[in-house]
């Protein structure tokens, strides 16, 4: 199935740039927060079956830490900042300065710190996107969950759910030094938001 009637490749490129700008700013914010370099991979933009989205973060049953927020405004959508348990531990260690979350239990402080990180990153992602497009976009209060990836991500797919069995995902991976993926930034604009994004960026629809 095709989401875009014409110029699909070009439109995917534009969305990749959207991810690049948003996540670039978020990576800078994370790097400032942790006081160490944070790299990001080139964003991937894909129109993929619901099932495959959870595969990006270890599979439907993989336990992840996810910060979810809804994007309100001109081009609504869903945003997730997803961490696996190891990187989350390292981030907390760097931020709070003590050995956090030895087992699978997280304290109130740790959860609140992770939630705040998500808030800051999503805020910088969205504000750069809003500057770039001239569209009004604001994040809702972030909500944090530590649970199965499939259960969490399905929330971001409801808007696409009525249209088909695939969703458009803008996925940016954060890397810490040369280590493997630190986290993922998922932006899943609502189906209705694409025309608005393209119009704002001067892309013929």
């Amino acid at each position: 199935m095709n989401l875009f009637k014409n110029d699909a490749d070009f439109k995917m490129d534009v969305l990749r740039e959207v991810g690049n700008i948003g996540a670039g700013n978020a990576a800078t914010a994370l790097s400032t927060l942790l006081n160490k370099p944070v790299d990001m991979a080139v964003p991937t933009v894909s129109f993929i079956p619901f099932e495959e989205i959870a595969e990006r973060v270890g599979g439907s049953e993989a336990v992840v830490i996810a910060i979810f927020l809804r994007v309100d405004g001109d081009a609504p959508g869903n945003m997730f900042f997803i961490l696996n348990r190891e990187p989350a531990r390292r981030i907390l260690q760097g931020l709070l300065g003590f050995n956090a979350a030895e087992n699978d239990e997280y304290s109130e402080l740790e959860l609140s710190a992770l939630s705040e990180i998500g808030n800051i990153l999503a805020g910088s992602y969205l504000s750069s996107l809003a500057d770039f497009t001239g569209l009004h976009m604001s994040p809702t209060v972030p909500s944090l969950a530590v649970d199965m990836a499939g259960a969490i991500l399905s929330y971001g797919l409801l808007q696409f759910g009525t249209m088909g069995d695939d969703a458009l995902l803008i996925d940016t991976t954060f890397l810490e030094g040369h280590q493997e993926a630190e986290g993922h930034f998922f932006l899943i604009p609502d189906p209705e938001s694409f025309d608005k994004l393209f119009r704002a960026l001067g892309v013929p629809i």
Partner: peptide
Amino acid sequence: GAVLKTTGLGSC
């Protein structure tokens, strides 16, 4: 005796 399985139910 086959087993049916579905993973990661959230709101589903």
